[in-house]
Every structure is written in C-alpha cells, then in structure tokens.
Design a protein around this nucleic acid. Structure first.
Length: 876
RNA sequence: GGGAGAUUAGCUCAGUUGGUUUAGAGCACCUGCCUUACAAGCAGGGGGUCACUGGUUCGAGUCCAGUAUUUCCCA
C-alpha cells in the first residue's frame, strides 16, 4: 500500500546517497562529449540562501539533462576564500576569545584562520546536497588550496613580466573598518541624506571672506587651496591672494581651475588633495601640498593641527568642528543635502578616498580579446541584452587594484630589497634575482622583505575555470573539459567575475572559458525588495526544503524565473511545487492500486488515449528541445507541468481509468507505465528526487537502472490533425460539463446528447475511439445524430459543430438568450474583422496564398457559427 | 548627468523570423462538488482598447519615432 500523500523527507536523503554511491556525480575524461560547469564559488563563510538555490538548481538541471543526453557531465564544486569577509569573521572570533589581531604574528593569525575554515567553512557545500546538486564532490576545489594558489602566483608573475601588472601610487577606495583598499566594484554608492555646510575663509591681509560649500567640514583641516573658475567674475579680484583655513589659520593659495562648477554652491571650492579624488587631480595640476589628516582607521591625526581632534573619528570631528566653526562665526549656513555616498560592500563603512601605493593590473590589453569574444557571440550571453552592459564597461575599463591590506589570502609574491622589487613564484627565486641584480651573493632570504599584502579574492576567482582543471599541470583534464559549457551566475557580478574570467581565459589559454553565460535574475520578495538579512525577508533555505521538499522548492524557484528576469519569491510558488509532487504521487497510486486482468481487451477509447498522449508527448519533446537550446528553463518546466497535470492526469488517466473496483487490461497498463516512465525522465532534471522514487515504483529495476542514469526520450512521429481531433473531443466534453454545471446536474447522471449532421461532426466522430471517449468521460447514455433541433434540449457550439443536451428541467430562456447574444456579438465582430481584411484588395494580392486561404476559412467558419447561433435564438 | 531595459488580466509573467479562428499560463476571484489516485483535490466560469500618440505595412502586442511612467547600470 502506498501512502496517500508524498513524503519528500523519506525519499530525498535515500536517493542522494544512492546516486553518490553509484558514482553518478563523478566524471573522468572519456570518449563521450564533455559537458562541464564550474560552480560560481560561494564564500567559504557562506550559508545557502535563495540566490544560491536558484543558481544551483539551474546548474543541476543542465547537468542532469546533459547526463540524460549521454554526455559526460562534470560539475565542479568549490569555494572561494573571501579575504575580507573571512578575515572579519576570524578577527571577531578572536576578539570574543579576548585575542587582538595586532598581538598575533601573521603565521599565528593564519593558523587560527585555517582552523576556523576547517571548522565552520563550507557549510554551504553540505547544504547543496540537500538541494540535490549533482556536483562531482571528488573535485571540490578551494581558491587557497595548493593547486589554485600555484595558479595565482604563476599568473601574477607572468603578468608582471609581461608588463601588464604594476605597482603605483593612486587614489584608492579605503575601507577604514576593514583597513584595506577596495576595488571600484566593491564600493556601493547610494543617495544618503546629510548636510551641506557653507563655511567662510578669511582672505589673508584683509577683512574680506570667501565662502565655500562642503559636505565634509572635517576635511577643512587638510585643505591646501581654494579653487574658483578662471572666468567667474565674482572672484577675479582674488587673483594672487591667499586665504586662511578657519580654526587653524593655515595660509593657502586661491587658485583658478576650470574644473570648478560655477553653479554649484558658491562657486568656490575647497581643495583637499589627500582626501578627494577630484581634488587630488587639481592638486597635481597646481602642485599643491598633500596633507593627510586622516589615519587609516578614519580618525584624525596631528597633521590637522587641532590637538583635541587627534584620535577622534571623522564623524565625531564633523559634529565637533561644525560647532567650533559656528562659535567662531565662520559657519555661514547649513542646508539639508542628499548626495551619493560610497560604502564598503563587506563592512558597510563609508569609503574614504586615500592616496596609496598599490598593485594594479593593466586592463586595457586584457580587455581587447574579451570584448571581441562577447560581441561576436563566441561567448554567448543569455539573455542577450547583457552584452550592452558588458560592452560599456569593457570600453571604459580602468585598471584593477588587486592588493588588499589583509593577511587571509594569497600573499603578494613580491620581495623588496632596498629600493628594488623582485617578483617571483618563490622566495628562493626572488633571492636568486636579487643576487643577480645587486651582484651581492651574500644576500640571504632574511634580507628580503615580502610584500605584506594579499591579493584580491577575485584574482584567484578569475582563474577558476582553468584552475579547477589544473591548467598549468597535467593537460589531459583541461584539454577535455575546457572551455566549459556554460556559466550560470547573477548579472550583479558581470564585472567582478564574468568579464575577468573571459580575460584570463584569453590571456593564458588563448581560448574562452565557457561557451555560454546564463545570467539569472535576483531573488526578491513579493514587494520586489532584495532579499537581505537586515530586512529579514529571506526564508531559511533549509527549512523551506524541509517543509516543501527539495523538489517542491526547485519547482517554485524555477517556474517563475525567466533568464535574466528577477524572481519574486512567494511561498505559494514552492507550495505549488509540493502540490505537483503530490499530484504525481497520486497518479502513481492510481495505477498501483489497480488489478490487471490479462483476459481483458483494450477498449477503443484507451487505444485512442494512448496514441494521443504519445503523439502529444512527441510534440512536447520538440518544443522542449528548443526551450533547452535557448535556456528557457522556466518555460520548459511549465510546459512539462501542464502536460503532466493537464493532459496526463486530467484527461489521459480519466479516459483509461477503469470503473470503480474494475481491473485494467494489460496493454493499457503496460503502455501507461511506459508513458509514466518517460515523463519521469523528462521531469527528472527539474525534480530529481520524486522522479527517481516513482521510477523505481513503476517497474522492477535491475542494478544501475536508475532514472538519473537513464536516457532522454526521443520524439516519435506525430499527426497534428489527429491530435487536434482529440482536442476537439475534449472541448465537446468540457461543454457538456458546462451544461451540467449550469443546470445543476450530477456528474454521474448519464445524459443523452444529440449532434447535428455536418461535415465537421462526421469527420470528428469517424476517428476511432473518439465517440467512445466522449461517451465515457462525458458520462453519456447516447450520442445521436440529428438534423433538427430536438425538443427539450439545450444547445452548445464546439467549433462549427452544434450539439444538444437533453434536459428534463425547465430551460432558463432568458439566461440562454443572453449567452447566445453575447456569442453572436463575438462571432459578428470576428467576421467583420476578417471581412475587412479580405475586402482589402492589396491584402488579397500581396499576402501569401496560405494566409489568404486561412482568412477565407475563418470567414466561412465565422459565418457558419453566426447561422447556428441565430437559429438557436429563433427557436428559443 | 550618460547609458540600457521595462510597460500585456487584480498580481507575477509567456507571447521565439509581423499573419495560426478578434491575446495565453499560474496565482487570486466567482459557482458547484468530500465523484475511492489526489480537498495538497475535481469540474466549470468571469476578467485584457496589449501605457499613450503618431508612423511603416495588405496586415502591428510584435517593427520605427516621440511622450509618460518605471527599473537597473555607470558617473
């Protein structure tokens, strides 16, 4: 006896363990066509969230479909080390233990970090199993493991020697909390409301003042000039004059530069070259002093010349200095002001522009082939419109700052001795270079000092499609799996990751890293808000799977998620998936509860149902092929869903289902099992667990006969006309049910139905089995030909065929008339529009013959319907 | 400020080279059913000037231009 409800918890763990033990997840190069995907490596600190579920469900679907297609599918899982996020976690953990990072040596700190990684890292990989992910776990990679690290050092050195990597002094985005530099892509800009302050500076040697506007009064202490526009008539008289910085009375020049926007504020700009990107540029042009008044942690220092601010945070000083400016009558005005503030993606700290010596990758040369590849569709984007975004970024690319002031990560392979730098994969090699360069053969390792910083995590991630296949080692694997088949990722990291992987692919393999890129949308809540911890609007992924089953969740994630489009998550979606599982389960139960009587003949309507469903399935398979090719996975799933629920369960099963407690004939049973089995295969990539479970319950299976290891069904021949006939018969049945509904007739009460003689009706009912089908599921006593409208019946129209249902009840003439008149309006409108088209001479002479012929047929049919409706109205 | 997209039923979205009986689905809604596979269900129903204006075309939800609203990206 099978349980009346499907219980995913029992089934899912069992099958995942089974698949894994069979080695289905593992891939080795062989003679089959390779299909490979590298996982977008989640942070080692990460836990499974909705975005991961969507992204990984899609990858799993593609992998399982490839397996069914007979390809050698390989999905490489892994994680990245997430420099900033992980280091922050470890520092926090140490703080809780009462240990300060500054009290530890680098090696001590790293020991703690590794310990943390082993203990807490990679939870997400375990969680992915619950989702059903068919990852090749034997290949699990980590950006800081030996092979991946070797690739990082090798490529760094290589770029350096090619002159594509350099060390330079630049304005950078500084995170004062994480105490590290950030790349442009790691800074998130948002409008924030604050204030704009108008502050006056006295002109040296006069009683005159000049007023400037600033949002950052605390940086006044670092001012080294006042700038005005060269053509601004208001300030011409200040040429050659100097101004005094309020509170500290530092004398600074008044300079003229056309960068200044005369419309903005007062038209006078304070220039702080050390703490503003634009001011830095102005400073360079005018050879201004660079006064750094902020420490790395965002506190003020003694260069600001105000003792009681030293060591105070920039925000505190802002409040304080405003008070002091006011007290000294230098504050002219304060206005509310909304401006764009950049914050660190990881720590949310307000980013501080800072002048700093960092390592950069020269992106111009790398970008060229990568841009071309995407524009020519050598690397194909799904959806296409992401190409524009990519193009824009690539054409305006800026150099990539890759050093980070952290310990967790790949320490930069550069060694300093005196004023020279030696870049090498190992310290020994660097020492060799240093000895050769200096001619000093007594130099020892201790004389060299390795760069303290580590590399940006993305500097290892961009090598991922190559490094997981050991591109600088044994070539067999990379030759077989590279380029990978498809990358599945969110459009939000198109610059951070996708673009850079394409660049690295061409740089070191002279070949794209993947054929296709499928961009998923963002998962949002019903109100279109991003899922976030702060809002608490993200459901717990694990709990969700426990409640709705992994298959249910997979269904819900995908059914509403077109490529590139955002997914508005609603629990109703996963609930629908859960219900779908139950539906499938109960279809199985229906068959399993039947007795088979081998002496039974196959009824006509069953034969009809079998060939109809088989042919319709073939039509669907053709459609699915197109869907998969275009990555229209959501559409594919919805197509399968409505085929299974609608065609298979609602129609097919109802036709072949024997009467209560009656046995089924063996042919129908066997064919039904075959069809159900194919449906399992077709649905398997989307909902792997329940399909595997049903697969094993349908038939006795031998060793290795698993759904996951099966073959995707081939589309057979089909006759569209035949399928259409059955669809017409379904329409007749629906309309009979409508009459029952309207007149409150029981479903079980057999009815007598008349069909009016016509060519169409003759044709339909001549198809073998159609009459029997209508009789059975329409629950009719008889279906009788007629040439006139029989007494005491109610009519309906199906296409251009007229049917009459015999009723013993009083007919509601008014309701009937209303309905008929509405139908008549519709039919007349239809005919009018077709007539208009056909009356147009240019249409008839210009449009293709087939189109015109179709319009003529539409006209005839429309007129026929009008005739029938008018007749019915008359006889009412 | 620059750029890219979006606008189809109450909601979320399909609608693939312009022509397939005057637009499809799921959810929501309404009506009637506990009919032994499934109430996590069954049967049926209503609901849309395809944002607006103009153009191209024999023919436009589909192509073009403008307007409005809106989302995102870059600065």
């Amino acid at each position: 006896m099978i349980s009346p409800t499907y219980n995913p918890a029992e089934v899912e763990e069992k099958w995942y363990a089974h698949w894994e033990s069979k080695g289905y997840f593992h891939s080795e190069p062989d003679e089959r066509e390779a299909f490979s995907i590298v996982i977008p490596p989640p942070n080692v600190t990460g836990v499974l969230h909705m975005g991961h579920m969507l992204n990984n469900t899609i990858q799993d679907i593609l992998i399982r479909k490839a397996l069914l297609d007979g390809k050698n599918a390989c999905w490489v899982p892994g994680m990245d080390h997430a420099s900033i996020a992980t280091e922050a976690k470890v520092v926090k953990m140490l703080r809780e233990k009462g240990i300060k990072k500054s009290d530890l040596t680098r090696d001590e700190f790293l020991a703690y970090a590794w310990e943390w990684k082993e203990k807490y890292g990679g939870i997400i990989l375990k969680q992915l199993r619950k989702l059903g992910a068919a990852c090749d776990w034997e290949r699990t990679a980590f950006t800081m493991d030996e092979e991946r690290s070797a690739a990082v050092y090798k490529t760094f050195v290589d770029l350096y020697h090619k002159g594509k990597l350099y060390r330079g002094l630049r304005m950078v985005n500084w995170d004062p909390e994480a105490l590290t530099v950030l790349s442009n892509e790691e800074v998130i800009y948002k409008d924030e409301s604050s204030h704009i302050y108008h502050v006056r500076y006295q002109i040296e040697g006069s009683e005159e003042f000049v007023t400037i506007a600033t949002t950052r009064p605390e940086t006044i202490l670092g001012d080294s000039a006042i700038a005005v526009h060269p053509e601004d008539p208001r300030y011409q008289h200040l040429k050659g004059k100097r101004a005094l910085v309020p509170l500290i009375n530092r004398s600074i020049p008044i300079i003229f530069d056309d960068y200044v926007d005369r419309e903005f504020g007062t038209g006078a700009l304070k220039v702080t070259p050390a703490h503003d990107v634009n001011d830095y540029e102005i400073g360079k042009r005018h050879d201004l002093e660079v006064i750094e008044v902020l420490n790395d942690d965002g506190t003020l220092n003694e260069k600001g010349e105000v003792n009681h601010y030293v060591g105070q945070s920039r925000f505190k000083v802002r409040t304080e200095i405003v008070k002091e400016l006011e007290a000294s009558a230098n504050l002219v005005e304060v206005k509310p002001y909304t401006h764009n503030v950049g914050r660190s993606e990881r720590t949310n700290a307000v980013v501080e522009p800072k002048l700093s010596l960092q390592w950069y990758v020269d992106m111009k040369k790398l970008a060229e082939p990568a841009l071309k590849a995407v524009m020519t569709d050598e690397v194909e984007f799904f959806p296409k419109n992401q190409k524009n975004v990519y193009k824009h970024w690539m054409e305006n690319i800026r150099d990539w700052c890759i050093s980070r002031q952290l310990w967790w990560g790949h320490q930069i392979p550069a060694w300093y001795y005196k004023d020279d730098v030696y870049v090498a994969e190992t310290a020994e090699e660097a020492l060799y270079q240093a000895r050769a360069h200096t001619g000093d053969h007594d130099l020892e390792l201790d004389d060299l000092r390795q760069d303290e910083d580590v590399l940006d995590t993305w500097f290892s991630s961009w090598l991922w499609p190559m490094s997981v296949f050991d591109e600088f080692g044994d070539q067999e694997e990379i030759d077989y799996y590279y380029p990978t088949s498809v990358l599945v990722t969110g459009w939000d990291i198109i610059f951070l990751w996708v673009a850079r992987m394409i660049m690295s692919g061409y740089e070191w393999k002279d070949e794209k890293p993947f054929e296709h890129v499928y961009f998923t949308g963002m998962v949002r809540d019903k109100q279109r808000r991003k899922m976030s911890k702060q809002l608490g609007n993200s459901p717990d992924a694990i709990k969700l799977m426990e409640e709705f089953g992994a298959d249910g969740v997979r269904y819900g994630m995908l059914s509403s998620s077109p490529a590139g489009g955002d997914l508005l998550f609603d629990e109703k979606l996963v609930d629908q998936g859960k219900k779908f599982c139950n539906k499938l389960w109960n279809a199985l139960r229906m068959f399993k509860n039947l007795e088979i009587d081998s002496s039974l003949e196959t009824p006509q309507e069953n034969k009809l149902a079998i060939s109809w469903l088989e042919q319709k399935k073939s039509m669907m398979l053709e459609e699915l092929e197109g869907n998969f090719k275009a990555y229209r996975l959501s559409e594919a799933l919805v197509t399968i869903y409505s085929f299974i629920w609608g065609d298979f369960c609602s129609w097919y099963l109802e036709i072949v289902k024997p009467d209560y407690e009656q046995p089924i004939d063996p042919h129908t049973y066997q064919k039904s099992m075959d069809l159900f089995e194919e449906l399992c295969l077709i649905l398997h990539p989307f909902m792997p667990f329940i399909t595997e479970e049903i697969w094993h319950k349908l038939k006795k299976r031998g060793k290795g006969e698993d759904c996951m290891a099966g073959s995707w069904p081939e589309a057979g021949q089909f006759d569209k006309g035949f399928v259409k006939s059955v669809e017409k018969a379904k329409d007749v049945v629906s309309k009979i049910r409508d009459v029952r509904n309207k007149y409150g007739l029981k479903k079980s009460e057999p009815l007598k139905v008349y069909v009016e003689e016509s060519e169409g009706a003759r044709e339909l009912l001549s198809v073998e089995g159609i009459r029997a089908m209508i009789l059975k599921i329409g629950v009719l006593e008889d279906l009788i030909w007629t040439t006139t409208e029989p007494e005491g019946t109610i009519g309906f129209l199906s296409g251009t065929e007229k049917y009459y249902v015999e009723l013993e009840l009083e007919i509601d003439v008014e309701a009937e008339r209303e309905k008929l008149e509405k139908d008549l309006d519709h039919a007349r409108g239809f005919v009018r529009s077709v007539e208009k088209k056909l009356a147009n001479e240019r249409f008839v002479s210009n449009a293709p013959e087939q189109v015109v012929a179709l319009e003529r047929k539409k006209l005839l049919d429309g007129k026929e319907r009008i005739r029938i409706i008018e007749e019915s109205l008359k006889s009412l």
